[in-house]
Design a protein around this nucleic acid. Sequence first.
DNA 1: CCCGATACTTGCTTTTGTCAAGTATCTCAT
DNA 2: ATGAGATACTTGACAAAAGCAAGTATCGGG
Lengths: 302, 302
Amino acid sequence: MLREIEAVRRFNRFYTGRIGVLPKGYLGFPFALGEARVLFELGHGGKASASELGRALELDLGYLSRVLQSLRRRGLVHARRSAHDARRTELTLTERGRRIYAELDARSREKTGAMLSPLGKEERSRLVSALGAVQSVLSNEKSGEIVLRQHRPGDLGWVIERHGALYFKEYGWGGPFEALVAEVIAGFLKNFNPARERCWIAELDGERVGSVLIVEKTRTTAQLRMLLLEPQARGRGLGKRLVAECIAFARAKGYRKLVLWTHSNLVAARQIYRDAGFRLVKREPHRHFGARVVGEYWELEL
Amino acid sequence: MLREIEAVRRFNRFYTGRIGVLPKGYLGFPFALGEARVLFELGHGGKASASELGRALELDLGYLSRVLQSLRRRGLVHARRSAHDARRTELTLTERGRRIYAELDARSREKTGAMLSPLGKEERSRLVSALGAVQSVLSNEKSGEIVLRQHRPGDLGWVIERHGALYFKEYGWGGPFEALVAEVIAGFLKNFNPARERCWIAELDGERVGSVLIVEKTRTTAQLRMLLLEPQARGRGLGKRLVAECIAFARAKGYRKLVLWTHSNLVAARQIYRDAGFRLVKREPHRHFGARVVGEYWELEL
DNA sequence: CCCGATACTTGCTTTTGTCAAGTATCTCAT
DNA sequence: ATGAGATACTTGACAAAAGCAAGTATCGGG
């Protein structure tokens, strides 16, 4: 933990130094920091009352009052008594205010652009995805953007990696399990038939967090494989959604039956299969991956 | 690019809001922001002159001069004429100053700790490694810490992923190539014999950036496979180091010959092999992975 | 209709930061 | 060695930013 705290602090020092926390002088614009912040907040949020602004920006209300006076005098902000509550003042940017805001915004965008421009395309995308990861860890909002897409080069390697890492962590299954997954994936890629098979990768805010495969077993039977969800992406119906995609795909391609093989200890997955209408058709204890497990065969008539 | 700029700006807003850029009132400590910053800088860096401080903290020298006066008066900072240069003042923290610094530092550490503590172990490590990635992209210093280690669960999946992604990007080799890699890896994991075989993963600042495998081909012949380096880790002798590890391992295990298969277009790798003493023994044009390539067999007598 | 709360304003003060001019010292070319 | 210009720091004068406290108007609930 201490090591991690130090790492974060090091990052903070680095990053704040790098992006210039104190956006001193909006380069030639005659706006004090406070004024600029108010313009940003109003430009970004649309409208607000003084006290809301004060809370959001953590400004003293007395000070804020004067800042607003100045902005009003200069014709950037329009104030109107609230109809509901005569104590409140509804603040909006005037036309001119919006123009200034747009300029400030553009300038800030330029500054960020200047930071990114020396980077290569690859580096930029590494950067963005790392920032996304930081944000997703720190903001416990479960409202990130989810995208399902088909696989691209490297994705199936990722599926193997995450199976290897997660199943080791959660169940202690080691190398042999990862080997099995790699074999399955190798087979899938080698004989991949896009007309009858598919892989879905689930992304949460641009980061891969889930997968599922559907492969042809016989002319009329498809098999669902490699359903996986990163811990941080669980509990928001994504597993269900992946399975639903598989079922829809299998139906659309004219399969008559969808089967899958899983283990009795994977309770969350089991529940998803059951809810989707799969029936447990066979149980089979075996020793694999270094532990005693019970394999299960499930089926769904389409 | 625009999308990326927006992503970075969104992150900046989020992160600065989150860590509280404006460390208002170091909670009960009678220090102005400027004073605290000076204490931090001195505590962190040891000693400095006023002008160095001014540059580092981007403070006006006049203002800084007064801040230093105040700190001196309160007995936190000790100033002494430089022996070399009588214009300069060498600033150090006094005993008391160091104590205060330690307290401020502890407080800041606590604050970071409070941010991390609600996170799980897994999340914390995701966070730290994402922050590290950000830092390594933005700071173009090539001085990160390099660690070579053996593989852990998930690592070989990562090797597949990176082969799939990088070879697609650099040479257009698609699914079939990734399938081949997955097959090789599956075989390696399935029959893994730690006494005669090994995988090295290279980490740069805690992030995986390279790999190589050594596998038993016959009792006397070992094969080097899956040598890979992320673009950002290239050009610092890491490839050479990985190959050297393999050769040393093969020697130590009593192999008589080390062989490898590569392609003529992988010029950087070729150079490494040549420098390590490998001889090209056979060339073989073939069509694979959707393109025409020339396979090469190299050998090294041990 | 009165009381306490909320939304904002205003006057006064301190803090913080800027600018410009000044002193002492150093460096380096002559 | 010496004088011009650079560097390191200080000081005075001021302006901007920010905080505090007291004040006015309005609201909501009993």
